[in-house]
């Protein structure tokens, strides 16, 4: 196999890896680098469990070739908390019981954070459409949407000038 040598920044740290030309970013994150928080639910871009942020844009890592990550930055669920400090989206998911099995949760949290990073005050409808690419089969979405709304409110508070 003619492996490619790829240099990236993952969750703020320089990361190099070797990959097959057809390996997806999801394959490499999970099996190569060991970041298994990013999940595979469909491998076709229909469930959002593999959502990561690539150069500031959230994408399905199953629909990105690992080779495309050359020189780019990747943010995964493992980088959402700052050290031991959970991100408000993570904390609100816990406070609301917005996860049951938890398998879709990393994808939802990465996607919700991406929404709040660009829209600090989304409506319920905006949240639902933004998250339409993330399937959850356990919760019926109710508590997830409420958690995101409350995380948005919390972040707005934090951002208010003292």
């Amino acid at each position: 196999m003619n492996k490619l040598h790829i240099s990236t920044i993952i969750n703020g740290d320089a990361q190099e890896f070797l990959c097959d030309p057809t390996a997806t970013l999801l394959d490499v994150l999970r099996d190569g680098i060991g970041l298994t928080g990013t999940k595979e639910g469909c491998a076709s871009g229909d469930c959002g469990a593999c959502t990561v942020v690539l150069d500031g844009q959230m994408v399905c890592s199953c629909l990105v070739l690992a080779a495309e990550a050359q020189g780019r930055t990747v943010a995964t669920i493992e980088g959402v908390a700052e050290g031991a400090m959970l991100h408000p989206v993570q904390r609100q998911f816990l406070e609301h019981g917005a996860l049951q099995c938890g398998f879709c949760t990393p994808g939802f949290i990465v996607a919700a954070k991406a929404l709040l990073d660009r829209n600090p005050n989304p409506t319920e409808t905006e949240i639902r459409y933004w998250l339409a690419g993330n399937l959850c089969r356990c919760t019926g979405y109710d508590k997830i949407v409420r958690a995101v709304m409350d995380a948005a409110a919390e972040l707005r508070q934090e951002r208010m000038p003292a």
């Binding site: 998911f93 816990l94 406070e95």
Partner: peptide, 21 residues
């Protein structure tokens, strides 16, 4: 009462190990 579940932090941070992990 509605306390945070004991396995919660593992599941919101991506640490929890599922079938293929």
């Amino acid at each position: 009462t509605r306390p945070v579940r004991p396995d919660g932090v593992d599941k919101v941070t991506g640490k929890a190990l599922y079938g293929t992990d």
